[in-house]
Simulated assay, not measured.
Amino acid sequence: MEYNGLTALVTGAGSGIGRATARRLAAGGARVIVQDIAEDGAAATVAAIQADGGKAVACICTVADETALRGAVDRAGGTVAILVNNAGVPGYNAVLEAIDYEAYRRLFDVHVWGTIAATRAVLTGMKAARFGRIVNIASNRGQVGFEASSHYGAAKAAVTGLAKSWARELAPFGILVNAMAPGVVRTGMTLGYGEDSIAAEAELNLVKRWAEPEEMAEWIAFLVGPKGSYMTGQLLCPNGGDPIVGI
């Protein structure tokens, strides 16, 4: 019960990595605020957590709505110790000429401003407690680029940049901030590209398979738990070897 007595906010927790993470943290004793724009998805996550004996409440709003997020944090008691900035939307393989402004704005509103909004919503409580754990979910496509949907790769690269800067800014308050860049994970969002697309991407990595959301949840649980207490400003890369990057 490594998170016993702590409150966690997981954005985009109505499905995929977010749902798996919310369930994993609840299993460790955390009370989880399940944020998602999809009411049915959030309700299903809350129900699954409660069925397992855990504690969870739903927050239905866009992740870019800082006011709504602050309201959810206040209703949860005002102090969130763990934040997982997971909410995201796909780029749908748009080449440069096909990117329109609305698609660009949606990606950056959700991935970048949504990450900022959620973090600002919990920051007062974390600073007062002089304790906090924040994980921004990035992507391997934000590390090495992507020949289709460059706006998606750019948004995910920005999420990593925010984590590195915040690690420096927030360390004096006992707040650790990291990012995680998964490889191909089988989720509802990635299935939107088609089963063949997921299988083809899985063939690019060294272990020749996709990951399940629960595998990513375990890495997030490590980062926000006691065993991750000496890590901040880092990018964790559970990607099956696609890509291998160094310094």
Rank of each mutant, 00 (worst) to 15 (best):
A43I: 00
Q35S: 02
E214V: 15
L123G: 07
K156T: 09
K55Y: 11
G71R: 14
F146D: 15
P172D: 05
V63E: 10
A128K: 15
R19N: 04
G240D: 02
L170P: 04
N93F: 01
G88E: 13
I17K: 00
A43D: 06
Y104A: 11
G54Q: 07
Q234E: 03
A30P: 05
L236E: 08
G142P: 01
V110K: 12
L170F: 05
F131M: 08
R130E: 15
G5T: 09
E215M: 07
M189P: 07
L223W: 05
V84D: 12
A68F: 04
G183N: 11
P226Y: 11
D196A: 11
A42G: 14
V84R: 12
D196S: 05
A27V: 05
V122K: 07
A103R: 06
G14S: 11
I17W: 09
P172I: 06
V57Y: 14
A181S: 15
G225M: 08
H111F: 06
G194V: 12
D40I: 05
G246H: 14
R133S: 01
A22Q: 10
A56Y: 01
S150L: 07
D109Q: 02
V224H: 13
G78Q: 13
G71E: 14
I99A: 05
G241I: 04
A51Q: 15
T124P: 07
A121L: 01
L69E: 13
M126C: 07
V112G: 05
A68P: 09
A167H: 07
